[in-house]
Amino acid sequence: MADKLKITLVKSTIGAVPKHKKTVEALGLRKLHHTVELPNNAAVKGMVNQVKHLVKVEEI
């Protein structure tokens, strides 16, 4: 299993549910096509699962 996840914002949060906007912000994603590397743990996976329609995830 991978140590880290590479998460990229691929869809705008304009018009998204406010809770999803906050989740994207909490993941550290600021602009469209911005990428962050986060640890592969249950908390991050849960956040990604909530906004899976807005992000692209790759295992590193």
Rank of each mutant, 00 (worst) to 15 (best):
L38H: 05
A2G: 06
V51H: 07
I60A: 15
T35N: 06
I14P: 01
I60P: 04
K31T: 14
S12W: 13
P18L: 02
G15V: 02
K45Y: 15
K4E: 10
G15F: 12
V48L: 05
T35Y: 04
N40F: 06
A26Q: 06
I7Y: 00
N40R: 08
E25H: 12
T13R: 09
I60Y: 12
V51K: 08
V51A: 08
L5T: 00
D3T: 03
K52R: 13
N41I: 09
K11T: 07
K31A: 10
T8K: 09
H34A: 15
V17L: 07
T8M: 03
L32Q: 04
I7A: 05
K56H: 11
K21N: 10
K22G: 06
N40K: 13
N40M: 05
N40Y: 14
L38P: 01
V55T: 06
H34V: 08
V55W: 02
A16T: 06
I14A: 12
I60H: 12
E37M: 10
L27W: 00
K52S: 13
H34T: 14
A43G: 08
N49A: 14
V57D: 04
A2K: 15
T8R: 04
L32T: 03
V10L: 12
A42M: 01
L5F: 08
K22M: 12
Q50T: 13
K6T: 07
P39F: 03
S12V: 09
V55I: 02
K45N: 14
V36E: 13
T35V: 15
E59H: 14
E25G: 07
M47T: 01
G46V: 06
R30G: 07
N40T: 03
G28M: 14
K6I: 10
G46W: 05
A26M: 10
K45S: 13
L38W: 03
K56L: 10
A16D: 05
N49R: 09
H53F: 07
G46Y: 07
K31Y: 14
G46C: 11
H20S: 05
K19V: 09
V24R: 03
A2E: 11
M1W: 08
D3S: 11
H34M: 15
P39C: 11
V36N: 14
K21C: 11
A42W: 01
V55D: 04
E37G: 01
G15Y: 09
N49Q: 11
K45E: 11
K56T: 12
V10E: 10
V48P: 00
L38C: 02
E25A: 15
K4G: 00
P39K: 09
E25Y: 12
L29M: 03
K21V: 10
E25W: 13
T8C: 00
V48S: 07
D3Y: 01
V10A: 09
R30W: 04
K19R: 15
I7N: 00
V17Q: 07
L27V: 06
G46K: 07
P18W: 12
V55G: 04
V10T: 13
H33K: 09
A42Y: 01
L27K: 02
R30M: 13
A26C: 03
K45W: 13
M47Y: 01
M47A: 10
L54R: 06
T13E: 09
L29W: 00
K19C: 01
Q50S: 13
H20M: 12
H33E: 09
